[in-house]
Design a protein around this nucleic acid. Structure first.
Length: 859
RNA sequence: GCCCCUGUGGCGGAAUUGGUAGACGCGACGGAUUCAAAAUCCGUUUCCGCAAGGAGUGUCAGUUCGAGUCUGACCAGGGGCACCA
């Protein structure tokens, strides 16, 4: 019997699919329901390893399954091609970023094609292509016209290694997301997108994302960080610096506990006071001099200075409150000023204790006694009953908040307000390999947009990477141009856009990548959007997924399209990684799995013969060398084996560990499936057979096939691919053990195999085609409809009922389905095992759950 | 500090609504085949026990005829946010 040879079969079927252009998406005219499935597009960093392939395989299973279910599927692929690694490669190897990038794209495209993905390659895009980024420049200008892109001087995150600014979302634990370097704060003039304008809708809409993981929804909600509260205006006793100081608080119910106000050191009032007061000036400088990295800021001790001015309490104009400046007050959040209510806030309490400010308890914890309740070193931050607070006395916190706001509004000294943690998206990058910002700076006219007919602003080719700073800035001529408005000599914007801008709308471009006069054809976008199933890594839970949600709304508002609800991704699945053991050589260098081998039970470095240290199991990554190259894997085991492996064992959202023995198990399975299929005798009916009059073993095998079909279908729908794999294993085991003895048996086996082959087609498409063809199936299996399980075969006519005595299983009986309770009870009570277990005890109750279980309660 | 998730055999995991815990795979062990090996095939494999039987889903309680599944407290691991007023 011949073995299945993926090396021959896989290219053959790939050509067959390509010849009939099988995966080209139709569109509005196809007459079929649409389904848009998308994997987060790759950054072309070099080569694809088995780890990367998991993401694409999962999307592919969905694409192929939906296709078999009669959907017009859009499943495109492209390249997130701008980014810093290309510049690093240019610096290290002297190759132009474009050349490096396109070279990688060619390699990776071939790798993805060898994986047998059902992709519509006619829609391929690369974001570094001027045909793509010209539209991005047009979008930038549209956002600018609509007030959603703006330029301002602000404190921003500066990555000293990558020599560029970063968005807040790209700073992880105080370090740059790519370089890992400690991020510094710098005051710079930069471009921003006004994502904060959408903070409210972006929060509210999270609730409707019911096909997103809860985890991602929570993370987005926390990131935006909406807090509801009040803005309170404290009247200044001295009006040199204005009428009031405005403060944001979430707890206006504690207003009667106010003992000081604290302003950020760079608050305008503090700055004004510092001019005539050397002590305040010194304090401000001290704060400014203090470390600029996130970590230093966090560790800095609390300190402040009395500014010598006073405000009046909004509810009592005879009550004066001192105004301080404190280093822990952030100028960027709320109004850059707080009121200190030490009894109810730990930080305020620490500050009050340090500087001897009053601590007035105003919230009584539940079950506490007003007469004895005191605050020592620990503030009570929870909700409770308000006291010591005049008209708020006796109210519970939520009611007191409302009452306080009501009063503030009546006095015109405040109002209900909402504050957000989210900052506007800083999109300027001081890098070369990105989309140029289409703006010209003119001494007379200011920032002037490049007129639409002059787009794209193309990157110059002749740049150097021998210095760390922005190559566009250093380019001798590129930045020199004329002002589009007045014609005078002017300077081009040399910053490029954050690459996350590119990935914020690529899924729209895929709907009509050939459109030249617009980023996308609105009719196509409206037909295909939203993406029905998006698949990608959890690392984008905030970054990309939040930006994209903002972008579709912004594009809606700029009139570029109409997308109901504004959400780009109706369904999101965040897949786990592929992990692998790590290895280090005797001298501490990372080694790849192909550089080691096992000799006499210990693993040694092949080159030196010295033993290696086996390290932690970690996500496959180039830096730790624990990768298995996809081409090499396919060379040995085939694409189907890679696909089956990454879907097996672990739930898709969890990590799966790559092991050689696991891969061998997959190989065994593929061969076993093949021998099972080819074991069908000559002249057997085709795979579309329905062996309607089967009985006995033949009927059992039919039932097994239809049950497996039902469970596999459910598992695919529920994104439980590991379960689907197990159910397929089960069916293969049943089919290979079934040796038909007559024509009816052969027909039943043929039917079972026919179901099996169509069922595995989304997972191992090449093997499925080969099987379909040997079984004599008509056409290609990709064109075969998903089989329907016969409901009559899903129900058993007898059931095995476990019988419990006091909740412990003691026996089981086989009864006809639907046997009356009385009879079941009688059978159960007379069963030997039950009689033994109940001897000498009184039967108090018998619970019969029809066709499920019997429980006898004795005592 | 606040918020969220996860704890099941030697391992990855299954048990979708409370109803036979451990499907399926890996590993291990035994056997067949072979001169031998690879490959393949057939068994066994939660733990204790020869067995009958007993115990068992992180711990402790609770609800229930019945809990991996529900509730509460705790323990452990992972993740997110964090001077955010």
């Amino acid at each position: 019997m011949s073995r299945y040879n993926p090396r021959e079969a896989e290219p053959k079927w790939q050509s067959a699919w390509a010849e009939r252009d099988a995966f080209r998406a139709g569109g509005p005219e196809s007459g079929k329901p649409k389904y848009y499935v998308l994997e987060m597009f790759p950054y072309p960093s070099g080569r694809i390893h088995v780890g990367h392939s998991r993401n694409y395989t999962m999307g592919d299973v969905v694409a192929r399954y939906k296709r078999a279910r009669g959907f017009d599927v859009l499943h495109p692929m492209g390249w997130d091609a701008f980014g810093l690694p290309a510049e690093n490669a240019a610096r290290d190897r002297g190759v132009h970023p474009g050349k490096w990038t396109y070279g990688n794209i060619d390699v990776m495209r071939k790798q993805l094609q060898r994986l047998g993905l059902a992709l519509d390659w006619s829609r391929e895009i690369a974001t570094c292509d001027p045909a793509y980024y010209r539209h991005q420049q047009a979008i930038f200008l549209k956002l600018w016209e609509n007030g959603l892109a703006y330029r301002k001087t602000a404190k921003v995150n500066w990555d000293p290694v990558d020599q560029t600014v970063l968005a807040n979302e790209q700073v992880i634990d105080g370090k740059g997301w790519r370089s890992g370097a400690e991020v510094e704060q710098r005051e710079l003039d930069q471009w921003f997108f006004k994502i904060t304008q959408y903070a409210d809708v972006l929060t509210d809409a999270i609730e409707g994302l019911d096909r997103w993981p809860d985890k991602v929804r929570t993370m987005q909600s926390n990131w935006i960080g909406r807090s509801r509260g009040a803005e309170v205006r404290f009247p200044l006793t001295d009006t040199r610096f204005g009428e009031t100081i405005d403060v944001f608080t979430t707890r206006p119910d504690t207003l009667f506990g106010a003992s000081f106000l604290a302003l950020a050191p760079d608050h305008p009032i503090v700055k004004a006071l510092a001019k005539d007061n050397p002590q305040i000036e010194a304090f401000c400088q001290d704060c400014a001099r203090m470390g600029t990295t996130e970590e230093e800021i966090e560790k800095a001790p609390k300190k402040g200075i009395d500014l010598g001015i006073k405000v009046r309490h909004p509810f009592d104009d005879t009550w004066e409150i001192p105004v301080w400046s404190a280093n822990f007050v952030l100028s960027g959040y709320g109004t850059g000023a707080i009121f200190g209510s030490p009894a109810g806030d730990q930080r305020d309490l620490d500050f009050a204790r340090k500087y001897g400010l009053p601590v007035n308890p105003v919230v009584l914890p539940p079950n506490a006694d007003a007469a004895t309740h005191t605050i020592e070193d620990e503030a009570f931050t929870g909700h409770g009953t308000i006291y010591n607070s005049r008209f708020l006395d006796g109210l519970e916190t939520p009611a007191a908040i409302e009452r306080a706001i009501e009063e503030l509004e009546k006095l015109d000294l405040g109002k209900g307000a909402t504050s957000y943690r989210l900052r506007d998206w800083l999109v300027s990058r001081q890098r070369y390999w990105g989309c140029p910002i289409p703006i010209v700076h003119c001494a007379d006219c200011g920032a002037v947009p490049v007129p639409e007919d002059q787009l794209p602003v193309v990157l110059p080719e002749d740049v150097t990477f021998d210095q760390p700073s922005n190559p566009l800035e250093r380019h001798p001529t590129w930045k020199n141009t004329d002002c589009p408005k007045c014609g005078k000599p002017a300077r081009r914007e040399t910053d490029t856009l954050d690459t996350f801008v590119c990935s914020s709308w690529y899924f729209l471009r895929f709907t009509s990548p050939w459109t030249e006069d617009a980023p996308f054809a609105p009719a196509e976008a409206e037909h295909w959007m939203p993406v029905d199933q998006y698949v990608g890594g959890i690392e984008h839970a905030i970054l990309h997924l939040l930006y994209a949600r903002f972008f579709t709304r912004a594009l809606n508002d700029c009139g570029l399209m109409k997308l109901d609800g504004g959400e780009p991704f109706a369904g999101l699945f965040t897949q786990g990684m592929v992990t692998h053991e790590t290895y280090k050589s005797a001298d501490g260098k990372w080694l790849g799995p192909d550089e080691i081998e096992e000799r006499d039970g210990t693993r040694v470095e092949i080159a030196t013969g010295k033993p290696v240290t086996v390290g932690a199991i970690e996500k496959m990554s180039k830096s730790k060398k624990n990768v298995v190259d996809l081409d090499e894997f396919i060379e040995s085991y085939g694409a189907d084996a890679a696909r089956w492996f990454v879907l097996s064992d672990s739930p898709p959202e969890r990590d799966v560990e790559y092991t050689d023995s696991g891969v061998e198990g997959v190989w065994r399975f593929i061969q076993r499936l093949w021998t099972t299929v080819t074991s069908l005798p000559e002249g057997a009916p085709g795979p579309a057979t329905i062996a309607a009059d089967a009985s006995g073993d033949a009927l059992d095998i039919r039932k097994a096939a239809h049950k497996a079909l039902k469970s596999v279908t459910d598992s695919i729908e529920g994104f439980r691919f590991n379960s689907a794999v197990a159910q397929v294993h089960d069916l293969v085991n049943a089919l290979r053990k079934f040796e038909p003895t007559d024509a009816a048996g052969v027909a039943a086996k043929a039917e079972g195999l026919g179901i099996l082959v169509r069922m595995i087609a989304p997972f191992v498409p090449h093997l499925a085609e080969e099987c379909w063809s040997v079984l004599g199936g008509e056409g290609l299996v990709i064109d075969a409809a998903w089989p329907e399980a016969d409901p009559a075969l899903l129900v058993e006519d007898t059931v095995t009922l476990p019988i419990q005595v006091n909740g412990k299983r003691r026996a089981q009986i086989d009864v006809a389905k639907g046997t009356p309770e009385d009879l079941v009870k009688e059978l159960a009570l007379s069963h030997d095992g039950v009689v033994r277990a109940t001897e000498g005890l009184t039967v108090r109750k018998v619970i019969v759950v029809p066709d499920r279980i019997v429980n006898i309660v004795v005592g």
